[in-house]
């Protein structure tokens, strides 16, 4: 659906993005992750045909953003970081205007508006002036305008920005609801939001993609050798000593211990788990749980961005 190669954009002397390269398949929900100012918005604006790149190539559904922006615009729905709303219009009037602007025939526009209002829970404010809506509703109208014409690709720049926790949960449900029929590219600087709704993550830092993959892939790649978490009914020190004897375990430490139950973390690849269980049973310890310790996305993200800053 999207192919990006060597995409670069300069604002004067400053490069907002440099040599960006990634591919997005049809039907994927992709999270675009980066701190503020990392270049997310610039990249999304180029894909949304709002800005032109300084260099490089970006294809959306096979069309080039520089040569065929008109074809791309027919296929996308774009929510910029600030929803493009006309305050003096009613919600229904605005959505109908956008639908027609994007090629929905006048006779079908109203039906599309009703459908998209149902998807985004906007029915109750159909006749309200946009200027009088709360922030949460405005953000939802922004998402609704991006999807009112049933585009193949949805580009949502920070759709959850400024929402309260309840609204964030609702917005997540809206985006999850889109995955059946759309390819979605959604950006955020908050990790937990993306990790819950996206198939794959692209991490951008200082205008460059520093990592991409599923949460697990990233954890495996950037989380070191991997670790195994063990819960046993035994003394922590004894359990740690038993673990260290297992082949493949580089080290073990007690994470916490209470009421005769210890949780330990062993530096070991996931395939060392059977050996660990056998060793603990042989040492006559009750094994309550053996898990692969997944490095949390948060720490990977911080590691990646800190590493970049240090370099």
């Amino acid at each position: 659906m999207i192919q990006v190669e060597g995409l670069t954009k300069y604002y004067g002397e400053r490069a907002a993005i440099r040599d960006l390269a990634f591919t997005i398949e049809r039907g994927e929900v992709i999270g675009f992750l980066g701190l503020n100012g990392a270049g997310k918005t610039t990249a999304l604006k180029i894909l949304g045909c709002v800005l032109l790149p300084t260099a490089g190539k970006a294809l959306v559904d096979g069309f080039d953003v520089v040569r065929d922006p008109h074809e791309i615009r027919k296929r996308i729905g774009f929510l910029p970081d600030l929803p493009p709303l006309y305050d003096e219009m009613t919600v229904g009037g605005y959505l109908s205007f956008v639908a027609q602007l994007r090629g929905v025939p006048t006779s079908e526009a109203r039906a599309r508006v009703v459908e998209v209002q149902r998807q985004t829970a906007l029915e109750e404010v159909d006749r309200e002036l946009i200027g009088r809506l709360s922030h949460g509703f405005r953000q939802r109208v922004g998402v609704a305008q991006a999807m009112v014409h049933k585009p193949k690709l949805l580009i949502l720049d920070e759709p959850t920005a400024g929402l309260d926790p309840k609204q964030i949960v609702e917005m997540r449900a809206v985006i999850r609801g889109l995955r059946q029929s759309h390819t979605v590219l959604v950006s955020s600087h908050i990790l937990s939001e993306l990790s819950q709704i996206c198939d794959r993550l692209l991490i951008i830092q200082d205008g460059e993609i520093v990592a991409q993959g599923t949460e697990e892939e990233l954890a495996r790649r950037f989380g070191g050798r991997g670790a195994v978490e063990v819960e046993v009914r035994a003394a922590g020190v004894a359990a740690a000593a038993a673990l260290k004897k297992v082949a493949g375990v580089a080290g073990a430490e007690v994470v916490r211990e209470s009421a005769g139950v210890a949780v330990l973390r062993a530096e070991a690849p996931p395939d060392a788990r059977p050996a660990i269980v056998r060793a603990l049973v042989a040492a006559e310890m009750d094994v309550l749980r053996v898990d692969r310790a997944v490095e949390k996305l948060e720490s990977i993200f911080l590691k990646l961005t800190e590493g970049k800053e240090a370099a």
Binding site: K45, G48, C49, V50, H70, R73, K74, I76, F78, P80, L82, P84, L85, Y86, D87, V98, L101, R102, G103, Q145
Partner: peptide, 14 residues
Amino acid sequence: QTRTIELLYSSPIR
């Protein structure tokens, strides 16, 4: 100023 121009820029209009 209100950045609604981005709606027009991203729509299939010349």
